[in-house]
Computed example of a mutant assay.
Amino acid sequence: MFSLRRGQPTLLLILWGAVIEHGYPAQGWLTFRQARAAGGSVRKGERGTAIVYADRFVPAAERQRARDAGEEARSVPFLKRFTVFNAAQCEGLPDDVPASAPPLPERELFPVAEEVIAASGVEVRIGGDMAYYAPGPDYVQVPPQPAFFHQIDYYRTCLHELAHATGHASRLARDLSDPFGSKGYAREELVAELGSAFLCAALGIRPTVRHADYIACWLDVLREDSRAIFRAASAASKAADWLLARRPAQQTEAQA
């Protein structure tokens, strides 16, 4: 069984994302060789999940050098790539293999937020360890919900990224071309964060404030333009309205 340790958060998130994406029943992962060694095999046609293991080690020569010099041995960083397969992709494995890794925590679903996400029409990809909106290919990426310290933060994050997505040329057509760290980027982040706050308020989710570095960027923008907050709030309100209007319950109420 491939060993997962607490010091490998990115690796854990990748595998959590794969479990959610493919609907595997448990977090049991093996390399091709490990499956064979366990008496089983990977089923024909199954595609593995690529992961990269990062760690450090001390070569024997360095340990000897450090002993001779009376110094502390220097470790060497390394990366190693693996392709692993979920136990559900294998056959002939012992019964205890799928249960040898802890199962993914159950999701804490918030139905009204799920409705907004699904009705948006924006592709939401689950996996990895970062949340972002990719304007070119037009998709939202978020880590698996159980990866968040508070699972409700998954929905706050999804709504923030979906607020960004409303700026696409096919929707509300905001300028999303400003690079990271620029004033224009900070303005768009402010729009997305206010949009998320408006959506949370409408859906009954308690809003939260983002990281201090975001706030510092917003303050720079607001110092330069005292009306920036009003323009951002207006754009955020339009973004929230665009998303809420597509929610099935909202459409039913409008037709009544």
Rank of each mutant, 00 (worst) to 15 (best):
2 F>R: 13
11 L>E: 01
23 G>H: 01
27 Q>C: 11
28 G>D: 00
31 T>K: 01
31 T>L: 05
32 F>R: 07
36 R>H: 09
39 G>D: 07
43 R>I: 04
52 V>E: 08
53 Y>V: 06
55 D>I: 08
59 P>D: 07
60 A>K: 13
64 Q>A: 11
64 Q>N: 09
65 R>D: 08
66 A>R: 07
71 E>Y: 07
77 P>G: 05
79 L>I: 08
82 F>E: 02
84 V>K: 00
88 A>G: 14
91 E>Q: 15
92 G>W: 13
100 S>G: 11
101 A>F: 09
101 A>H: 11
114 E>A: 09
120 S>E: 05
120 S>M: 01
120 S>G: 04
124 V>W: 03
127 G>A: 03
128 G>H: 02
131 A>I: 04
132 Y>R: 10
135 P>E: 13
137 P>M: 14
144 P>Y: 01
150 H>R: 15
151 Q>G: 10
153 D>G: 11
157 T>D: 07
159 L>D: 01
186 A>D: 06
187 R>T: 06
188 E>F: 07
192 A>E: 03
192 A>M: 10
195 G>A: 11
196 S>C: 12
196 S>Q: 12
198 F>A: 10
198 F>M: 06
198 F>Q: 00
211 H>R: 14
212 A>M: 12
217 C>I: 02
217 C>E: 09
226 S>I: 09
232 A>E: 02
233 A>G: 10
240 A>E: 00
244 L>P: 03
244 L>A: 07
245 A>P: 10
248 P>C: 13
252 T>E: 15
253 E>P: 04
253 E>L: 14
